[in-house]
């Protein structure tokens, strides 16, 4: 995929915000990852990273369709979301082990679709447990239970 339009877009956003930041691109199997670096990129990770989530949504709707297959664009700043995703993955695995040992269902959430995907994929690596999303809102809770 040609990442130049997205890099240009992110540069226009940071310059309009009046912050000095550079965009690093990393190609992964899941698609390109864009990480904004520079001290002032901190502006985007305030309020629990809400501005970053908003930026991700806008990049998805503007450029998401130019991706092939199940690849997705990932927008990050100061590797904030990368760290959060690792935490979430570890938490999912911890709860999966707990469900396995105790036999009782474990809950995680509410989580947005992206976060739920991380949980489903992480738990799928552990045999004997299954996951299910419950709820009917945009954010749902993931139930991790012992497979019968």
């Amino acid at each position: 995929m040609n990442t130049t339009p997205i890099v240009d877009f992110l540069n226009r956003v940071t310059s309009a915000l009046g912050i000095t930041a550079s965009v690093n691109v990393e190609e992964t199997a899941d698609g390109p990852r864009f990480n904004l670096t520079g001290e002032e990129a901190e502006l985007l990770v305030r309020h629990r990273g809400e501005p970053l989530k908003a930026l991700q949504h806008i990049v998805d709707s503007s450029y998401g369709r130019s991706l092939e297959g199940d690849k997705r664009v990932f927008v990050d700043a100061l590797e904030y979301r990368k760290g959060k995703d690792i935490e979430l993955r570890n938490m999912a695995k911890f709860l999966a082990e707990k469900a396995k040992q105790s036999g009782t269902d474990q809950q995680l959430g509410p989580l947005n679709p992206y976060e739920r995907r991380i949980v489903h994929l992480a738990v799928a690596e552990i045999p004997g447990v299954s996951t299910e999303s419950v709820g009917d809102a945009f954010s749902k809770t993931v139930l991790i239970s012992l497979q019968k």
Partner: peptide, 8 residues
Amino acid sequence: ALRTLAST
């Protein structure tokens, strides 16, 4: 999302 980034 636009409102969030406008506030930012």
